[in-house]
């Protein structure tokens, strides 16, 4: 059987992480093609429910990329993201999902190398974890229940 190729959705803030991913490209740094980026204005825009939905839709991991603490274009969005992700990771095991499948990373616009490394590392980690539910009989809950539980930042 071919090696398990995890699928990753990345919510990247346009000012830092998305621009960092751009720089990885301009610098021709190589990393695995498992990640599909989605540009958001700010990591603080990312709703925990989006993350859960991505995992339900077949993502093996979700990456949220924001500006380093103190660098947020909107002052404090990254701190909001950090709090939300912290809470989300507390809830994920209840849904039968390993919290390590969700990563919040600070990547500045000048950290192309760091973006490439973060993706490569995440892909390796998810390869080791395998597909969702592979290691446990995760009881799935309905989307409505998830949303009710997870909305509200």
């Amino acid at each position: 059987m071919a090696e398990f190729e995890p699928k990753i959705v990345a919510f990247l803030c346009r000012w830092c992480a998305y621009a960092g991913a751009d720089l990885a490209g301009t610098s021709r740094l190589k990393y695995p093609p498992n990640v599909v980026p989605i540009r958001v204005p700010c990591s603080g825009r990312v709703e925990p429910a989006w993350v859960v939905d991505a995992l339900r839709q077949g993502a093996d991991g979700v990456l949220i990329g924001g500006c380093h603490p103190g660098d947020c274009h909107y002052v404090s969005g990254n701190y909001k993201a950090r709090r939300r992700v912290y809470l989300l990771k507390k809830i994920l095991p209840e849904l039968g999902i390993e919290p390590d499948r969700v990563r919040l990373e600070w990547v500045s616009a000048s950290e192309g190398k760091r973006f490439a490394e973060v993706v490569a590392d995440f892909v390796a980690e998810l390869r080791a974890l395998g597909p969702i539910g592979a290691g446990s009989d995760a009881s799935r809950v309905t989307r409505d229940e998830e949303s009710t539980a997870l909305r509200g930042g």
């Binding site: 959705v9 599909v36 989605i38 958001v40 204005p41 700010c42 603080g44 825009r45 990312v46 709703e47 429910a49 989006w50 939905d53 991505a54 839709q57 993502a59 274009h73 909107y74 404090s76 969005g77 909001k80 939300r84 909305r151 509200g152 930042g153």
Partner: peptide, 30 residues
Amino acid sequence: CGACAAACPSGAMSLRNLTDEQVLAMVRAA
């Protein structure tokens, strides 16, 4: 920035041209 939209518990607050529905459709398409 959309911080309000992410925090809204009833889905009333949204961001023009980056709504929840759009993002979820993008995720599925990806």
